[in-house]
Structures are given as structure tokens and as C-alpha cells.
């Protein structure tokens, strides 16, 4: 994982080609946390990543075997699979600064 962090710093200010964000948001049904997380994340993405992100919202209740495969513990969980490195964020995405930091956008 240490390698990942190094790469993060290298990639922060360059490599425009890989600028498309692939995000997966795992939620647990229609709980209040889930609803808030979806709303907050959509807002952040619209604001900072307009037209350069793909967001998949996955309800773990619909496919329970995912939980073990994806090492899910706390929900809601946001996984940023691209650009590298992969980052994981938990919570209802109400702390915008932390979400941006997690997405690697805090500098913008």
C-alpha cells in the first residue's frame, strides 16, 4: 500500500489522460445513511467531476455475496477504482473535504 501512496503524489498534478473517475458506492438498502450518501456524493461529483466520472450505486442487500468478496464492513462505502490508486471511503459523504481528499481532488 505504501507504493500506492507514492504513486498518488506522482500522479496528482499530471497525467491528464487518466482523468476519468470510476466510482462504486456500496449501500445497504434504503437506510438514511445510504440515501444521504448517494445524494451527497452526486452533489460532489457534479460540482467537481462533471462529465468525467462513472458512478455505480450498488445495494449490497441485492447481492449479499458481494460483501465478502469486496471486504465490506462499514457502509456506505465508496470505492474509487480509477484513477489509481484505489481509495476507499466510508460514511455518508457529508464531510466534503474528506471526500475530495479521498478522491485526490483536495488540491483543486
Amino acid at each position: 500500500m505504501l507504493e500506492g501512496i507514492h504513486q498518488n503524489q506522482d500522479w496528482d498534478d499530471s497525467d491528464e489522460a487518466d482523468n476519468h473517475f470510476e466510482l462504486s458506492l456500496y449501500i445497504a438498502g434504503a437506510s438514511s445513511n445510504s440515501i444521504r450518501a448517494v445524494a451527497n456524493l452526486r452533489e460532489i461529483c457534479e460540482q467537481h467531476l462533471k462529465d468525467r466520472y462513472t458512478l455505480r450505486v450498488i445495494d449490497v442487500h441485492q447481492e449479499k455475496s458481494l460483501a465478502s468478496r469486496e471486504q465490506l464492513v462499514a457502509l456506505p462505502l465508496l470505492v474509487k477504482s480509477r484513477p489509481y490508486p484505489e481509495r476507499r471511503m466510508i460514511g455518508d459523504m457529508s464531510d466534503t473535504q474528506k471526500v475530495l481528499k479521498g478522491l485526490g481532488l483536495s488540491g483543486e
Binding site: 437506510s31 462499514a74 479521498g102
Partner: peptide, 9 residues
């Protein structure tokens, strides 16, 4: 990264 309310669902 913890970005707000969560639980162990």
C-alpha cells in the same frame, strides 16, 4: 477515509 456517518451494515 471516514467521510461521515456510517454503520457496520
Amino acid at each position: 477515509e471516514e467521510t461521515g456517518e456510517y454503520n457496520l451494515d
